[in-house]
């Protein structure tokens, strides 16, 4: 519904110009441009990365969606495809990459591990889902999602992009909005999420005999 509203400019073209002029809304143009060239960050973490590579190869060919340009540098990427288990040791690197990505930027959690820690959730070196730190746009369940499932997730992301409006997306807001910049966690005695410093302090203070 919302999508339709965005696409209709509420303006009728005079009949004699119908074949010569096409009008659209700025939103629609902007979304069309972005959805057709979502360049992912070339970023494989674990098992899912192999399926991500498979999705790029001949049989599934993500290039059909304008998503084949894997950029090794975050500065040229539009989307971070978190494909695999996010470990505590790796997390600062991921956050740094995310912060370096220019806006608009999207995060897709591919597979169980990236969405919630998956089967390795209980592990001492595993972050229970990248959504604890980054704003995730699409979650793709599966361990690993098959290439087709990945592409289905990408289509879902395109649908999300289609529904966005230039006026409301968070990256053009003047106020500081959560999610545009994520403070770097620290690798201390355990992973330290600096946004929760007060809690750590309180926990350490009440710890008996530590």
């Amino acid at each position: 519904m919302e999508n339709e509203k965005l696409s209709l400019p509420n303006y009728n073209i005079p009949e004699d110009l119908e074949n010569a002029v096409v009008i659209t809304t700025l939103d629609r143009l902007y979304n069309w441009g972005r959805r057709s060239s979502v360049w992912p960050l070339m970023f494989g973490l674990a098992c899912c990365a192999i399926e991500m590579i498979a999705a790029q190869t001949a049989r599934y060919d993500m290039a059909r969606f304008g998503m084949e340009v894997m950029r090794p540098t975050p500065r040229q990427a539009d989307m971070m495809l978190v494909s695999g288990t996010v470990t505590k040791k790796m997390l600062p690197a991921i956050i740094r990459l995310y912060n370096q990505m220019p806006e608009p930027k999207y995060v897709v959690a591919m597979g169980a591990c990236a969405s919630s820690g998956g089967p390795f959730k209980e592990g001492y070196n595993v972050v229970a889902g990248i959504d604890k730190f980054l704003p995730v746009d699409v979650y793709i369940p599966g361990c690993p999602p098959t290439p087709q499932a990945l592409i289905a997730g990408m289509i879902k992301l395109q649908e999300k992009i289609d529904r966005q409006s230039i006026k409301t997306v968070r990256w053009y807001n003047k106020e500081k909005v959560d999610g545009n910049y994520v403070p770097m966690p620290i690798l201390g005695p355990d992973l330290i999420d600096v946004r929760r410093n007060a809690e750590y302090k309180a926990a350490a203070a009440t710890k008996e005999g530590a």
């Binding site: 229970a128 604890k132 620290i186 005695p189 330290i192 750590y200 302090k201 309180a202 009440t206 530590a210």
Partner: peptide, 23 residues
């Protein structure tokens, strides 16, 4: 959600009076 349990008090071994800001 297992992660919603407070992970700080149960098993995490911080040094006494650990201060993340000064780490």
């Amino acid at each position: 959600f297992a992660e919603n349990k407070n992970p700080f008090r149960d098993n995490l071994n911080f040094p006494k009076d650990f201060d993340p800001e000064k780490y």
